[in-house]
């Protein structure tokens, strides 16, 4: 804290003027980033076709992080939580990276058979080795589950 050079804080007196603003802005940024992160995993991922909404959360985390980073420079230099808040910014960046990485691994919903379309027929071998076709199961509603496999 005491070793912060003048170069990094060219106008400390100006910073103190906006101290309250900076703090409020900073924490709202952190909060926004955290909320959009938590709601992504807690809510959006449960939605059908959730991959389509990932970008909203990514942008929100980014906006929150940008607000936090920008307002960080306006925090009073002796603000006791400055180191802590610096860490919070780092955490926000990590969260963003994680959401981005996680979502980039998701397969796109493009090209997936849609509601209203007729099911493409298939004929596949069941556990007994016998081939069964889709038509075998029709006549009543059918729940078709695709598993990743490689149990």
């Amino acid at each position: 804290m005491t070793r912060i050079s003048g170069k990094e804080n060219p106008a400390p007196e100006k910073v103190t003027v906006h101290a309250a603003d900076g703090r409020r802005l900073f924490w709202s940024g952190v909060l926004l980033a955290l909320l959009s992160f938590v709601s992504y995993f807690g809510f959006t991922l449960n939605l059908p076709g959730s991959a389509g909404y990932t970008w909203i959360h990514e942008r929100l985390v980014e906006v929150g992080a940008v607000i936090a980073v920008l307002s960080w420079w306006r925090l009073p230099p002796r603000f006791s939580t400055r180191i802590g808040t610096g860490m919070a910014v780092a955490v926000a960046a990590l969260l963003l990276g994680y959401v981005h990485l996680y979502s980039s691994m998701l397969p796109s919903t493009e090209g997936v058979i849609q509601v209203g379309q007729r099911a493409p027929v298939f004929s596949l071998a069941g556990p007994d080795g016998e081939s069964v076709g889709l038509e075998t199961f029709l006549g009543k509603p059918l729940i078709l589950i695709f598993y990743r496999g490689y149990w």
């Binding site: 997936v112 849609q114 209203g116 509603p141 059918l142």
Partner: peptide, 19 residues
């Protein structure tokens, strides 16, 4: 992925969970 087909083989519901 989970699909629900009606008796005629038309997709009525799907869930492409990303998680």
């Amino acid at each position: 992925a989970t699909f629900i087909l009606d008796a005629e083989g038309v997709i009525r519901w799907r869930n492409l969970t990303s998680n």
